[in-house]
């Protein structure tokens, strides 16, 4: 039984926005619950995929889990140790074990530094090592991410997108992490390069025994790379389970629509599942729209077909994740 490396319990992260010109004095603030009570765990050498539309809070979870942002409430356990209230110095040490791959290809690369110096810096952050050891390690990393040695003396802007991504991954690997949060690692890349990176991430996992929290809106890639998938909607996980189950036997109407939209884009006629949701409500998706009860109800085809049952919009009975067997969890009053 593999060990649990990361556990998140009822994590909340709310952002506050000042409202209006004089809010500094009136103290009127707008609350945006980007992550609103999320629990999941990640086992060693396992990948959990996090999917959802833009703005649903996936990236915020990734940042909060690594404590790049402070959570509003909830607990984060890394290796069974609570890191929710860890100090800056403790966190700095922990970064040797947990890392993040950023969506932005340039994020990790100082434009004024050569690739060699970027990697050297990363290698020496957490360990004091000799120069020989550094060059040996750089060689090893280049081999791992399949990058040519000649690129070492280049500056980041001289690299192509795929090469930048590889350097980014090498930089993350250089500290020797066990947990990697990959935030949309392929979305900034060309189609033909995406496959290279997906393969690379999978190879690295089997070689090094890494655990990934894989955040993406590309459903196919998530399905391919993840063991488990969590589907998010407006800051909450609405369904979670083995990736095959989520993709092919979804229980939550939202998950169903998400995956059928993928198939439907290709097929010449739209599937019946989404046909009856073709009303105008379909563009609406934001935190500011008031809801009560289930947050998906305003867009939900099942809610419509069930004749708008009151339980769905009852503020006292917001659906919670419940197990329906095999670790498949769904938050819906009327699962499919």
């Amino acid at each position: 039984m593999p060990k649990t490396i990361l556990e998140v319990i009822d994590l909340k992260k709310h952002f506050f926005h000042r409202k209006g010109l004089f809010s500094a004095f009136s103290g009127e603030e707008r609350r945006i619950p980007a992550v609103d009570g999320v629990s999941f765990y990640l086992k060693e050498n396992e990948t959990v995929g996090l999917v959802g539309e833009s703005g649903c809070g996936k990236t915020t979870i990734g940042r909060t889990v690594l404590r790049l942002a402070a959570p509003t409430s909830g607990r984060i356990l890394f290796d069974d140790k609570d890191i929710t209230t860890a100090t800056t110095e403790q966190l700095r040490k922990l970064r040797g074990q947990m890392q993040m791959i950023f969506q932005d290809l340039d994020a990790a690369l100082n434009p004024k530094m050569r690739i060699r110096d970027i990697l050297r810096e990363a290698i020496t952050v957490h360990h004091k090592v000799s120069d020989e050891e550094v060059s040996r390690r750089i060689g090893e990393l280049l081999e791992q991410v399949n990058l040519k040695k000649g690129k070492l003396s280049n500056f980041p802007h001289e690299l192509s997108g795929g090469e930048k991504r590889r350097v980014g991954i090498a930089r993350v690997l250089s500290v020797g992490p066990r947990l990697i949060v990959a935030d949309e690692p392929t979305s900034a890349l060309d189609v033909s390069i995406q496959a290279q990176v997906v393969n690379l991430l999978r190879d690295l996992q089997s070689q090094l025994g890494l655990s990934y929290l894989f955040i993406s809106h590309d459903l196919r890639v998530v399905e391919l790379i993840s063991h488990k998938v969590a589907v998010m909607y407006l800051g909450k996980i609405v369904e979670m389970g083995l990736s095959g189950r989520i993709a092919h036997a979804p229980k939550h109407p939202y998950t169903h629509i998400l995956w059928s939209s993928l198939v439907e884009k290709q097929s010449k006629e739209s599937s019946s599942a989404t046909r009856n949701t073709q009303s105008g409500i379909w563009g609406v998706f934001d935190f500011e729209r008031p809801y009560s009860g289930c947050r998906f109800a305003p867009r939900c085809p099942v809610y419509e077909s069930q004749g708008r049952p009151t339980v769905c919009t009852d503020p006292a009975s917001e659906p919670q994740l419940r197990d329906i067997g095999d670790g498949h969890q769904v938050a819906c009053h009327f699962p499919l």
Binding site: R63, L66, L68, T88, R92, K93, L94, R95, G96, Q99, M100, F102, Q103, D104, D106, A107, A108, N110, E121, A122, V125, H126, R171, V172, V175
Partner: peptide, 22 residues
């Protein structure tokens, strides 16, 4: 804005290095 600082923090660089060097 380019996540540059956050990436440096997440690598585990001390604030001093990030500010002075980077």
């Amino acid at each position: 804005q380019k996540n540059f600082v956050e990436a440096a923090v997440s690598l585990g660089l001390p604030a001093r290095t990030i500010i002075l060097k980077h």
